[in-house]
Amino acid sequence: MSGMLNSTIARKVAMALSAIFLLIFLLQHFIINFTSVISENTFNELSHFMGTNILIQFVMQPILIFAVVFHFVMGFILEIKNKKARNIKYASFKGSTNTTWVSRNMIYSGLVILAFLVLHFIDFWLPELNYKYIQFNPEDPTRYYHELVEKFHNPIRVGAYVVAFVLLALHLLHGFQSAFQSVGLNNKFTPALKTFGKYFAIIIPLGFIFIALFHHFNH
């Protein structure tokens, strides 16, 4: 057990587990955000619950931050080792004949998503921390919807949002099934899992883009 954390397989499994956690987080984030399109009150109620529940705020949120940071840091660590593993490059390397573009460029789609998360942190999370833990403003269960709508007024922000979610879709197109392969799941259910993963990778990011565009053009 002691040497496990140093091995290439253990790192990939840890990377995959953080990815699966983030996939679940992404799904719940999407479901809550999507309610903003349907009902202002529902969105406010759910956001208020997420923003004030002790378990979510002080247990799940730190786990989420750890998973995000871990996923990116481990991604860089793995990439450094990968680069070292081929010290002399090929004069000709036709990766496109045997792999997809998305699978070969996970680090680049990941970097765009990282840049987006920094923006997202500044946009949503910092004001939230400021509101609750610095200003100590009284809790207002109706504020969330208006804060969301206001963010999507700026077309540049919406544009960045769209680009980031297109890259997230590309990242998930490979990452979803790759995570399950890394944890050792490759059996008769794998074709179905791959198909589900492709739908997930396209529908969820497209849904986020739809929410951003909906609020931009309707308010």
Partner: peptide
């Protein structure tokens, strides 16, 4: 395998 300096598996399938 790790000591020999091979890279990690990215599951590209190549």
């Amino acid at each position: 395998m790790d000591e020999e300096g091979f890279g990690n598996c990215s599951n590209t399938g190549a």
